[in-house]
């Protein structure tokens, strides 16, 4: 047998048969869809600032809430995963991806009941984001705090 098919070389050989990842096309799609979601976010922010006379920071809460609502609905009608197959990181990175990971887990485990199914599995995928966010914020926060005490006083 050809040595490239030997066990130790097999993984490398198999990869040479992979279709080439269309990196540029994938990045372009992620850029357009991700940028578009942020553009909607900006439109919503401006809308809330104008209509409800909010500051930019105040408008952040209704903006994020609206985006999450849209994402949850698109997940519910079975569209978000289709867009995601096209957009890749373009739909995973915005906060809508976070909402999709929560809604999709909740939907999927509905058949196992409301408490142990939906309740128990909602954070199956999104949990890691909160865990690593909180842990890193704690660590960076303590460093900043100690630094400020020593330098800023």
């Amino acid at each position: 047998m050809d040595s490239k098919f030997k066990k130790e070389n097999y993984n490398k050989t198999a990869k040479s048969y992979y279709p080439k990842v269309p990196l540029f096309r994938n990045c372009l799609k992620a850029f357009l869809v991700g940028g578009f979601i942020c553009l909607i976010g900006e439109l919503l922010t401006k809308f809330y600032m104008q209509v409800f006379d909010m500051s930019q920071q105040e408008a952040g809460t209704p903006t994020v809430t609206t985006l999450i609502l849209l994402s949850a609905l698109l997940t519910g009608i079975g569209v978000y995963d289709r867009i995601a197959q096209f957009a890749g990181a373009g739909t995973a990175v915005p906060v809508t991806g976070f909402a999709n990971s929560i809604t999709s887990a909740a939907l999927e485990f509905k058949s196992e009941g409301y408490v142990l199914g939906i309740g128990g599995n909602m954070f199956k995928l999104a949990g890691s984001v909160i865990v690593f966010g909180v842990t890193s914020a704690y660590i960076v926060g303590i460093i900043r705090y100690v630094f400020n005490q020593l330098v800023g006083g």
Binding site: P19, V21, Y80, D81, A87, G97, N100, L125
Partner: peptide, 17 residues
């Protein structure tokens, strides 16, 4: 999908392989 990968509505981009 549910048992081996992700919830069916989760937006995960699958590779062509």
């Amino acid at each position: 999908e549910r048992q081996f990968r992700f919830p069916t509505e989760y937006g995960n981009q699958k590779p062509e392989t």
